[in-house]
Structure formats: structure tokens, C-alpha cells
Design a protein around this nucleic acid. Sequence first.
DNA 1: CGAACGTTTGAGATGACTCAAGCGTTGTGG
DNA 2: CCACAACGCTTGAGTCATCTCAAACGTTCG
Lengths: 237, 237
Amino acid sequence: MYTDRFLKDKRGVRLEPAERAALEAAISDIKTFPPRKTVVFAGETMNFSMLLIDGLMSRYIDDRRGFRQLVAVHVPGDFMDLHGFPLKQLDHDVATLTASTVAMVPHRALEQLIEAEPPLARKLWFATLIDAAIHRAWLFRLGRLDATGRVAHFICEMNARLVAADCSDGQSFALGLTQVDLAEICGLTTVHVNRVVRILREEGLCRIQAGRVEILDLKRLTARAQFDPYYLYNAHP
Amino acid sequence: MYTDRFLKDKRGVRLEPAERAALEAAISDIKTFPPRKTVVFAGETMNFSMLLIDGLMSRYIDDRRGFRQLVAVHVPGDFMDLHGFPLKQLDHDVATLTASTVAMVPHRALEQLIEAEPPLARKLWFATLIDAAIHRAWLFRLGRLDATGRVAHFICEMNARLVAADCSDGQSFALGLTQVDLAEICGLTTVHVNRVVRILREEGLCRIQAGRVEILDLKRLTARAQFDPYYLYNAHP
DNA sequence: CGAACGTTTGAGATGACTCAAGCGTTGTGG
DNA sequence: CCACAACGCTTGAGTCATCTCAAACGTTCG
């Protein structure tokens, strides 16, 4: 089922089979997008939301000179722009990083869904709040960590989220990001990301190359990043 | 009424008088807190949420060495930890900045409230999503702006939010923050904040002193900060 | 084969940090 | 009512992390 990974194993919330089935039924269609394609632009009026089935996607804010700051990276199971349901407009763009498969859920169907399964509304709300918690962890990352710590922190987060989404065994995982992407995530320049990646490799913490990440020493990587997965609200941390 | 400022003048949502009255009735008591006091600690189980009536409060994440990164600053009318209602635990601390008055709303009362006024649930959700949008703007600030831009961006945001909350005339406003606070918000050191504050004053953009901010040239300040108030979802930007 | 893209490396510049000291105000207890 | 501690602000000098600019290299793909 397309919705299998949505809110899987989250602390404090559980989707009932009926709710999951109803959500599944609310999907109007499945779309695929090529890599590096902007799918939704800031300010558009939204009448659907998107559940990521496969691939990696991002949300970003452009500055005046065209430089972008990523504000979120999404893994399979993420309901990426569920906030567009109450908000109706987004304050950021949404784009693919790698080729992606997305389930489209019309807002009209969400309305009916909540009507039919009232407790589901609270669970959708919950999902958007985890997103906000991730935003806060990113604020900590950008505000308080040095370049090496930032990249390490991001890798730790991706590791934890991909493991939770059953997309990683915790040892190594596909992460189709370029060093440019990492720079736009961590608030650094590409050149410096390149140096940081080397440092992480030379210090035996992790290896980032060719769209794959290999965790070499999770304990030390976590320490270097001051990473605490609490904010992900995973049931099995 | 205590709840007058909550969701006031927000794009895409409006609290009906009956809803506002019901929310008002859900308040169990009003508390006052002295400045610089941590009110809620990360990880505690929450059974109430707090609506800020008067004062300035913050949410922050501590790093291992005790340095903090503020992830939110709240102005009167903000439902500061409404996300604690679905989430039940917070991933950050909550503290006062200045002396503050807070309306306590038990989660049990919120449950009954939503039962009595179902459309209110969506509006509470909406409120937490604006918080998330502000987080994203902060990510942009930390990731893409230099020190001067960061402080300018924060001042622009506070100006817009305080005007919307009827706590500023748009020319000057009380902002009981020290340079240490500004540093913890903008991911800078105190020393450097001091220099930035001087630059902003010398360039005729704004004056920040003795807990007050005076906007000298909003247009240039906004440009320097690359500030766009869209993300605040204010009806009258 | 050539263009496009992502990565790598070097050298030099600079924005922000660290450390250190001094200043002004406020509040408090002797 | 004064002395002094506490706090926030200010300034200077030197250091360091990260950025900028520039060039080269490898891979992929048309």
C-alpha cells in the first residue's frame, strides 16, 4: 500500500487499519517526477497535498540572488505539503531531488476523509508537527554547529529517518544528494562542503560519495553532531 | 478578552465569536512569570498549553555545552506550545524573556472545545502551521544571511508581528531582548551582535537600545534583510 | 567527441570568533 | 546612603573558520 510508511512507528500516534485504508482511497493518482524538478511554487493556491512514495524531495526558499536554502528534505512516507491543506498556500517551493513517485491527495478528499474518520484529523495534525520539530532541529544545526557538525548532524538525521522508513539498514544508504545540495541544506558553500566531507571520511565517521552514505562510526558521528533523535518522535530510537 | 489577539487578522482563517468565547472559557487560569524563567522543560509530559497574553517568551534548544539556540520568540496572542497538545511532549524548553502573563489551557478543555466547536480544530492546526512557517523563515535567515542581515531580518519580523498584535505602531516598539538574546536567536556571538547593532544604527536602518527598537528606514531595512512578510500569513501585510 | 555536471584542490580574502578589558547602570545589603 | 556586585554594553587586537575566485579533473550522456 502506498500509505504504509506514513506515520509508521511514531511515538504517541498510530494509524488504524481503517484509517489507513481510507487515506489510501483518498489518493487520486500517482505521479512520477524527474530529478531536480520544481513541482509546486511558493504562493500557488493548493488544492491537493502530496505523499512521497519513493525518492527524495525538498522544500526550499530562494533568496533574491537565486541562492536557495533548503528548509526540508523528505523521505518516503512523508506527507510533504500537508500543511498546504489548512494553509492553502505555501511559503516555499517544493522540488524533487532524485526521481520521485508521489501520491496526490486532493484536499476535497481529505475533507471527506476527516468527516468519515474524525480521529484521523488529529493524526494528520501530528504529522505536520513532526515536520515542525524537524525544522527546529535544523535551526539548532544552523545556529549552533560548525560546518563539520552540520553535515554530520544532517547525515545522522537522514540515517535515523531512512531506517525508520525502511530505506536503510543503518549501515549505509542511498542519498542522492550532490555536494551542492548539502551546501544548500547546511548553509555552507559547495567548496567547503567538499572539505567537510573529506574530514568526515578521514576521521572515520562516515563516507559520502556517489549518492551513497556509509556510516563508519555512528557513535562518534552522533557525538560530533550533538545529534539526539528525540525530535523525530520515533517509537524505536 | 484574553484571546482577542489569537489568530487575529490571519489570511485564510477567522475565529467566530462563539469559538473565541469557547476558547476563552477553556482557560483554567492566568499565570504570571518573572523574566528569564524556564517554564517548561523538554521531554516533560504536557497536559496544558499556554496562550501568551502579555510579555515576550521564547523556545530554545540547548547544546551540550549549555549554549542555547532560540527556535522561536513569542508575542502576545501566540499559542506558544499548542503543538504540545497532539505531541504531548516538547522537543525544546519554553522560557520567558520579559515578565509575562500566560493563559493556561488544559488539554482536557481543548478536547471538549473541539468536540463543541469542530471547525475550531482546523483553526488550531492552522495556528501551529504558521509557527512552522516562521521556523522556515528562521532557517532562511540562519542559512543564507550574513550577521547584519540576520539581525535586520529578525527586527523586520518582530516589527511585522508586533504591529499585527497591536503592540507597535510600526515606528518603534518595546523589545525586551538583550544582545545575548539576539545572539542566541541569530546564531552569532554577543560581541558580534554588538557590532551589528552599531552598523544598523550608523547606516540609519534601525536603532536597538535599552529594550526598544526604533525603525529608521523600513524600506532599506527590509531590503538589507531580504525580508518578505508573506510567511506570517497576515491579512494586512 | 564535446558539453554539462559534480567533485577536488589551492591561494588569498574576510567575516565572525575569542580573549580580554573597561564602562555604565541597576539593585542591594551593610 | 554609599559601596559593591551583577549585568549588559562597548571596544580592541589577534585568530580562525569559512568564503571567494580560479582552475583542473573525472564521469555521464547525448
